[in-house]
Every structure is written in C-alpha cells, then in structure tokens.
Simulated assay, not measured.
Amino acid sequence: MSVSMVSDSARTAAVARPGGDWWSREIELVDHLRSLRETAARELCGSVTLPAVEWDVPWRAAETISALTHLCIDALRRVPGSEDDRGERLCGLILDLQRLAMDWYLHDTAMRGQRLADCAAGLSRLRGVPDSAALLDNACQELVLRCGFHRAVLSKVENRSWTPLMLHDRSAPAGGSWFSDWINQTVPLVGDAPEAEMLSRRRPSLVYDTDNAPVYRPLIVQAGQSRSYVVAPLVLGQDVVGFLHTDHHPLARRVDQADRDVAWAFADGISHLYERAVLVERLQTHRDSVRELFFGAVDRIDQLCESGRDATRWSETARTEDAGGPVGNVPVGLTERESDVFDLMVTGASNQEIADRLVITEGTVKSHVKHILRKYGAVNRAQAIAWALNGS
C-alpha cells in the first residue's frame, strides 16, 4: 500500500529531534548493509537473488538483513567439509549481519525516543507563545527544526476544502518560490485522498509513494515534488480545522512510521495549545466586555444619583464672567470617582493612563471627564484645571 492510516490503537506520544544529524548515522548503517550485501554476493556466487539496499526506504533494512542472514545460513549448510575457509567466511558474515541488526535496532529505538523528546521540548517552547496567531506562525518552523523533517506546510480546513497558509523549508528561502503561488488557494477534499479521510478519522496518514496514491497532484507532486509525506490533522474540539504536511524533500529518503508518530504527536500537542490559546482569547474578550458594562452601569448610577442634587447648579456654573471662570467661584460638586479622575487630570495624565491607574476602561474615563467639564462649565481639560486651581 502507498497510503497508511494509523489505527486507533497505535497512537503514541510525540516529539522529535532538531536538525538532521540523525540521518548521518542512518546513512552509515545503510552503507554498512550495502557492504555486507556485496560480501554476501561474492560468497554466494550469484546462486540466488539478493534483496536490494536503498536508503530511501531504510525501514526495510531489518527485513533485508534477515533475508541475507537466512541465505548465508542456507549456504553454510551446503558447504563441503573440505572448504573450511569458506565456512569461516560465511560464519563471520552471519555474525556481522546480526551485529548490524542489533545496531540498527538500537539506533531506531534511540532516535525515535530522541525525536519524541525534542518534539516535547518544542511544544513546551510554543506553550509560551502569546496568542493563537503567533502559535500557528511558529508551528511549521518548530516541526522542522525540532522534529527532524526537512519541510512542513500548515493549512486551514473549511467547507470541504483545505487552504495552504505557510511553509517552512530548511533548504529554501522563507516562503519558497514554488509555494507562494499556492498560498490561500483552495484545494478540494474529495474522494479517498488522505486529507479527506482525516476529516472523520482525525488520525494522521502516511503516504509511502505519491506516484501510486490518490493525492492532490498539482500541489503535492507537480509543485511540491514530494515523493512521500505525512499529513496530520489539527483538531479543535471535535472538528479538524487544519493540516500539517511534512516530508524529507529534497532528500531521497521516504517517510516511515516513526515520522508519522512524531508528526502526530506534534500536531496533537499543537491542537491542545491552539485550543487553549483560543479559549484564553475568548475569556479576555468577555472580561473586557463585562468590565465595560460594569463600569458603564456604575457611571450611569452616579449620574442618576446626582441629577437631582446638581440640577440647580448647572445654570450657574455654565455662566462665565468676561475674565473666564465660574461665577463667584461657585464650588463644583464632584463625585468621589470624578475627584479621583480629576486629581490625575491635574498631573497631566492621559485618559489611558488614568484608566490604568484606577483600573477602569478608557471609555469610562472619557465619560467622567465629560461630566467634570460640564460641571466646571469648561470647554476643555486645561480650562477646567485652570479654573479649579484659581478657585482653590
């Protein structure tokens, strides 16, 4: 199969390794396997067909080592007693293959754990990002730099389609020339494409070979030149709201199950962080609305309480003498909150600074300033301050 959907029971935690230095060790192991295959070919004298060794599919190494080992064991059983040297060479080759199998297992296990640990570190860093937009802006870069991939694309999902938004490619300039033409372009979610299946399954897909998979070829194959990739869903609540596509292009190496597990863990972590960020932003919006309503109500209550008491004072304070100022320095009655605002006005504080000091909204400050000006019969803040100081 060229496409693999992870089963519900196969889910693991996720994380990854920065950079690509782990590939160098993998290449060394593949080169060693090639060398042992050549040795086996000489010892077996072309009597059997040996499996090929290719770095683009390193996960087949264990199966190749096993096949070579069994072929050498079969040949050893047929070695005549007179050919001791050949028997020793075959025994040594079998031992070398078994050592390589153990080295490969240890490398694969260690790197899977290391990549998951590095992925967790990346998610921990993203936890400190201030808002949901910044979180998404940093997701692709963190997936590539921390998790051992070469490039990653973030897309949003809506109305049975997905829209590419951003790319991070360690081998190309920011944005990528091929990708710029696809930003904000609509890609349909139809048929049995891996992306379409994820809408209901909410599980990542591993595409082994794009040549034989029902992928969206104009973007993924023709523009992106991807031979093999992993796509993982971003989930908000019960809905898939985005995709993370990642691969090893331009390396020949194809993705494997370890890549799928790492990408899934990262996408799952980003989903939780994004949901948290969205909830915090909504709470902040509601808090600001409630605060505005509360202080607006307090301001209205102050107006109602003072309307009767100050009604007879408006006409007197509104009249000014030729020199300017309230007639006879009639004292102006300010509420306690208005007095607090006025005291800060005298210091030259702005409306926002007053709001911050008194823990009220700027709109409430403006309302208090308007009332203060009206009570002083002043046309601006400076005039009210001047009259208040002259009358003190």
Rank of each mutant, 00 (worst) to 15 (best):
R202P: 00
Q185Y: 02
D192W: 02
R203M: 15
V129C: 06
L189S: 08
N184Q: 11
R201A: 12
L145G: 05
S205P: 05
P188R: 05
E197L: 14
W178D: 13
Q185F: 05
P188V: 11
D169T: 03
L135G: 08
P204L: 02
R170Q: 12
W182G: 06
P194D: 04
S200E: 14
L126F: 02
N159Y: 05
S177H: 03
R202K: 15
G191Q: 06
R160A: 15
K156H: 09
E158K: 10
L126T: 03
V129D: 01
R170E: 12
S177I: 04
P130R: 09
S200M: 09
A134G: 12
V157I: 11
R127G: 10
D137E: 15
M166A: 14
V190W: 04
M166I: 10
E142F: 00
V157T: 09
V190H: 07
V157A: 11
A139C: 15
W178Q: 09
G191C: 05
S200Y: 08
N184Y: 06
A174P: 03
S180Q: 14
M166S: 14
L145Q: 13
A193Q: 11
R127T: 04
A193R: 08
S171M: 09
A139E: 09
L154S: 06
L167P: 05
G191S: 05
C140S: 12
F179N: 01
R146C: 11
W162P: 04
M198L: 15
E197F: 07
V144H: 00
G175P: 06
R125P: 00
P173Q: 04
V153I: 15
A152L: 03
G148C: 01
G191I: 02
W162H: 14
F149W: 00
A134N: 08
D131I: 03
A174L: 09
R146E: 11
D181Q: 09
A133F: 03
M166E: 10
L199D: 05
V153A: 08
E197V: 15
D181N: 06
R201S: 14
L154Y: 15
G148T: 01
R202Q: 14
G128R: 12
I183A: 12
G175N: 10
V153Q: 07
S132A: 15
F179G: 04
P194T: 02
L167S: 05
A139K: 04
P173N: 04
T163V: 15
P164S: 01
C147E: 11
N138G: 01
P173D: 07
E195C: 04
M166W: 02
C140D: 06
A196I: 00
V190Y: 03
R125A: 11
D192T: 08
R146P: 00
L126I: 05
S200A: 14
A152N: 03
S205D: 10
H168W: 14
E142D: 10
K156M: 08
P164C: 01
R202D: 01
F149Q: 00
I183Y: 00
W178M: 07
R201D: 03
R160I: 02
T186N: 13
G176A: 10
L145W: 04
A172N: 02
P164K: 02
T186G: 06
D181S: 12
S161I: 00
P188F: 09
W162F: 15
R202E: 06
